[in-house]
Every structure is written in structure tokens, then in C-alpha cells.
């Protein structure tokens, strides 16, 4: 009598072909691998890290990170010399016993930001950091009069 007789660990982004995989799974995995390789979007991601998005609008730069199951207290976000450092840890009760898993990532921020006005929110396991840009790094409209 069993529910599942194997442990399948395919934690994003490290893909291990452990356990039983169906054709659909392999297709998905290959699709993702080829998609990212051919699209040239994401650099090689190594274990212990987590997916990160970087985007901006006219006032702010945003960094979004997938960190499911992390306590708000265990998330630390700080600006270090033009980069945003995200650190988090998660307590786990696995078959091997209790343990703490740490994650960290350093994201280079292209624009000058107001470090003292950085805010962060955490919802559904996704951390969103809002970094307001400095006035001088915002795009300026320059009117040129043509005679």
C-alpha cells in the first residue's frame, strides 16, 4: 500500500531526471531547456538560486523573485554598490530530518536608485521589490527649437 514510492525532486531551476517521468514531463523539461537556450534569455542558473525578473516603468525599477514558502522574517533585501542582494532561508522538514535551506541572489540594477526608498512586498510566494529611480537617471525630454 503506497501513495508514491519514490521521491521526485525536480526543483526549479535544477532539473534532475530522478523518479518516474512521463513523456509529457520530458517534453516540458526539454521545451524549457531549449526555450531558454535558444531564446538566450536566462543565463545559466545554478542550484540554490531562484528565478528573478527585472523590469521597469518610468519611475521605478522592479525586481521580482519566486521564493515560495519563506517566512517574511527570513527574507533580507538590501542594496549593495549598485546591486540588489536578496537572501532568504526556509526551514524544511524532509525525510532526512529538519534543515534550513538558504537562497541568495545578487541582481545588478542598471539605474541609480534611491536606496532609502526601496520597498518590498511578498504575496503568494513571490517577492516584489520596488526601487524608485533617482531623478537624474530618469529619461528627460529635451525640447529643441528648430529655427
Amino acid at each position: 500500500m503506497h501513495l508514491i514510492n519514490y521521491t521526485h525532486r525536480n526543483s526549479f531551476p535544477v532539473t534532475r531526471f530522478g523518479g518516474r517521468l512521463g513523456a509529457q514531463d520530458i517534453e516540458n523539461e526539454l521545451g524549457w531547456l531549449f526555450g531558454s537556450a535558444l531564446g538566450g534569455l536566462a543565463p545559466a542558473i545554478i542550484g540554490g538560486q531562484f528565478p528573478v525578473d527585472l523590469y521597469e516603468d518610468k519611475d521605478n525599477t522592479y525586481v521580482r523573485a519566486e521564493l515560495p514558502g519563506v517566512n517574511r522574517d527570513a527574507i533580507s533585501v538590501e542594496m549593495v554598490e549598485g546591486s540588489l542582494s536578496i537572501q532568504a532561508s526556509r526551514k524544511e522538514n524532509g525525510a532526512e530530518g529538519e534543515g534550513t535551506v538558504s537562497f541568495n541572489r545578487l541582481v545588478s540594477i542598471p539605474d541609480e536608485v534611491q536606496s532609502d526608498k526601496v520597498t518590498a512586498s511578498y504575496e503568494n510566494g513571490i517577492l516584489t521589490v520596488t526601487l524608485p529611480r533617482r531623478e537624474e537617471s530618469k529619461p528627460k525630454k529635451i525640447n529643441v527649437s528648430v529655427n
Partner: peptide, 8 residues
């Protein structure tokens, strides 16, 4: 928004 980098 302008996407600079996307992994998700």
C-alpha cells in the same frame, strides 16, 4: 513595463 530580464 519594460522587461530587462525574465526568468519566471
Amino acid at each position: 513595463v519594460v522587461v530587462l530580464h525574465r526568468e519566471s
